[in-house]
Nucleic acid binder design. Structure first.
Lengths: 109, 109
DNA sequence: GTTATACTTTGCTATATTGCCAAATAACAA
DNA sequence: TTGTTATTTGGCAATATAGCAAAGTATAAC
């Protein structure tokens, strides 16, 4: 495999780590401050093991880091610039919605 | 499903569309200007049907649009802000590499 | 009409991801 | 030691994704 292709693969791996509703939620929540695994589990409303796995994926991608205090594990956001990107995604969503609206309008005529 | 959860799902779907080496390559290439499906296929070096599917995924996510001229189909980037995000991913990759380097150094001692 | 070119769609198999449950681990308290 | 709380890990079934090959569509040239 070529050097360039490896780079694309590495970048895609990080983006893939963000590409999940729960993980997206976790990133946005951690942007507000550190949160425990339990707190995030409660907010998401899934099985603790499921959320733990999501946190593991984000940690493995280097997007968050954990800090253990007693029995609870606090997670912190490592790359806040990810948030800028999410705002771009929001813009894409809005454009898509506008396009859909335009299609609906045209059909009405 | 809650309103907020739908939003996270919609955003994750767009991010998922970007989260693939070939699709990442396509986005960066289209940032330089429009490219035909054939040209992109040649650059990626995969089956035309495979690249066509990737282009379909990007189009479906609202990230690119196509313009047919004769028998060739040209693809255009729709959301250039996606590129800003990729630079953030690059930064994450660099941080991860640095961390790895630090671990290696510590083991040497 | 036929043929060629440029793509896309369908069908299929291999592989990856997701999420729950149950079991394991870690830290602490009684 | 035993129990309790907080979290992670392993196992497994359901679902989603990726990529090749073959068939299908569209446009242009002859």
């Amino acid at each position: 495999m070529k050097k360039q292709q490896i780079n694309y693969k590495a970048r895609a791996a990080i983006i893939k780590a963000i590409a999940h509703p729960s993980r997206l939620f976790i990133i946005e929540e951690l942007n507000k401050g550190k949160r425990s695994a339990g707190k995030l589990t409660e907010m998401i409303g899934a099985d603790p093991s499921t959320v733990s796995k999501h946190l593991g994926i984000l940690k493995n991608a280097g997007l968050v880091f954990d800090e253990k205090r007693g029995t609870t594990v606090y997670y912190h956001l490592k790359a806040p610039c990810i948030l800028d990107f999410i705002s771009c995604v929001e813009a894409v969503l809005e454009t898509n919605a506008r396009t859909q609206l335009e299609i609906v309008r045209r059909c009405k005529r």
